[in-house]
Nucleic acid binder design. Structure first.
Length: 404
RNA sequence: GGGUCGGUACCGAAGCAGUCAAACGGGGCUGACUGUAAAUCAGCUGGCUUACGCCUUCGGGGGUGCAAAUCCCUCCCGGCCCA
């Protein structure tokens, strides 16, 4: 506890309000603690359900980064234990082993991906990585029962997700029910002062707060972040295809941001960039008169810059203007070797993997969605002479270059 | 343990012997339009086939029948109620 933390009230206020949905028990209490010079230990837990972190994670990680910069002790917790028992359909032992391997694989790259945002190698105050299997796998049944006695069934049922499932007559598995306990125990095991997470995690984070109070006799603050979504509640690319992951190419990131609804622009600036709030408010006002597209382009550029740096962002923007505004071709596209000299369109596109089946290729030809060197293919019987450098295109955004 | 309802395509959800590759909604794809890859509108959305048509699919397995997602048997999984 010799390390100094920054107690600048203005900075603290910014950290505790920007992109923040709510602080529990309340903001002033946490503010007081931070101003006192106390070095807080805080963390965010990541569920290793997929191989890639995405922008939703970035929102929370960015908040952690701000705490790191203030000098607080930041932990990135990987929920490898919780992740392993996560899927209720996996019942057999062999499947569970597989799941374990998968979870490990998923975790592997998290550090690398998160290092776009967090600093793990800072000499004075690096972000620490922990795995919750470290302590969870040591608990025995008696320990679990002891922890379980902290809560009543009614308390756990309060979670809206459970409530809904009960009214819908959907199953709730017992281990899902215990999730808040397991997650809450992380807070106890690490003896943290603060947990940061998305507001969808509020229930679990608060369960942890209760447990810390009971077992360690201290306050654990909870900071719930706003989620990445349109203010109208419209979800923002939550489906896999549209989710922006931290391993996406800059061009992809930029393009995906551009496909967000206009309503996402202001929240996006708030939670994913460092553009000052005053400026964001100005833009908000200006946007109502002008063309939101330009502000969205700035947002896309800011986001890519924040994650991958300025050069990448500039390139991505140029590419976007080229391909989508001027309807030109991208500079780089994937390439494929074709052996045959002459092929039917359908077979040709199947080989490039631009389409997944012959039927799909036929459908797309019907719809005018397949192009060879800018020419729309009109007839599925068309024979194509395969030439080097030939450009095959599906729809507006998928290209492949033939290299023979 | 008893009763009862249910398991359908990527997801949600209709269908309950032939006209079912299976309504509808979401998602995805393509097109038109546009300031955008937004919104809106239109089409498409199991596979093979130029097409006629054929093949695979409705929890698993086995039956009945000219014909099954639809009926019967059995197994697996779940909801609700009773104990």
């Amino acid at each position: 506890m010799t390390k100094k933390v920054n107690t600048d009230p203005k900075l603290i206020n910014e950290v505790l309000s920007r992109g923040v949905e709510r602080v529990y028990p309340d903001k002033t209490e946490l503010e007081k603690a931070m101003r006192s010079g106390q070095r807080l230990r805080l963390y965010n837990g990541i569920d290793p359900s997929g191989p890639c972190l995405h922008l939703g994670h970035a929102v929370v990680l960015r908040k952690l980064r701000q705490f790191q910069e203030l000098g607080h002790e930041v932990i990135m917790l990987i929920g490898d234990f919780t992740g392993m028992i996560g899927d209720p359909t996996d019942k057999s032992a062999t499947r569970r082993q597989l799941a374990k391997q998968e979870v490990l694989n998923n975790c592997q790259d998290y550090k690398k991906q998160a290092s776009h945002i967090l600093d793990f190698s800072d000499k004075d105050n690096p972000v620490l990585i922990k795995y919750n299997s470290t302590w969870n796998s040591k608990l025995d049944f008696a320990d679990v029962l002891d922890l379980a006695s902290d809560f009543t069934v009614q308390q756990l049922l309060e979670r809206d997700m459970f409530e809904r499932r009960v009214t819908d007559g959907k199953p709730i598995h017992l281990h899902e029910f215990l999730y808040p306990l397991i997650q809450g125990y992380d807070s106890v095991a690490m003896a943290v002062d603060l947990e940061v997470g998305g507001n969808d995690q509020t229930f679990n984070m608060l369960a942890g707060r209760d447990m810390v109070k009971r077992h360690l006799g201290k306050e654990k603050f909870v900071l719930a972040m706003k989620l990445l979504e349109d203010p109208t509640g419209k979800k923002m690319g939550k489906t896999e295809g549209n989710m922006i992951t931290l391993v996406d190419k800059p061009e992809e990131m930029y393009g995906k941001v551009m496909s967000w609804t206009d309503g996402m622009i202001v929240p996006g600036f708030e939670i994913l960039t460092n553009v000052p709030m005053t400026e964001i408010n100005q833009m908000d006002a200006a946007m109502k008169k002008g063309n939101p597209r330009d502000y969205k382009m700035r947002l896309a550029k800011e986001i890519v810059t924040g994650l991958l740096g300025t050069p990448a962002a500039q390139k991505a923007e140029q590419e976007f203007i080229k391909v989508f505004q001027k309807k030109d071709k991208p500079d780089q596209m994937s390439e494929i070797k074709i052996r045959e000299k002459k092929l039917n369109v359908v077979d040709l596109f199947v080989q490039t993997k631009l389409v997944s089946s012959k039927s799909e290729a036929r459908r797309l030809v019907d719809q005018g969605g397949l192009l060879v060197n800018d020419q729309v293919v009109k007839d599925i019987n068309t024979e194509i002479e395969v030439k080097k450098g030939m450009i095959l295109q599906r729809g507006k955004r998928q290209f492949v270059r033939v290299i023979i």
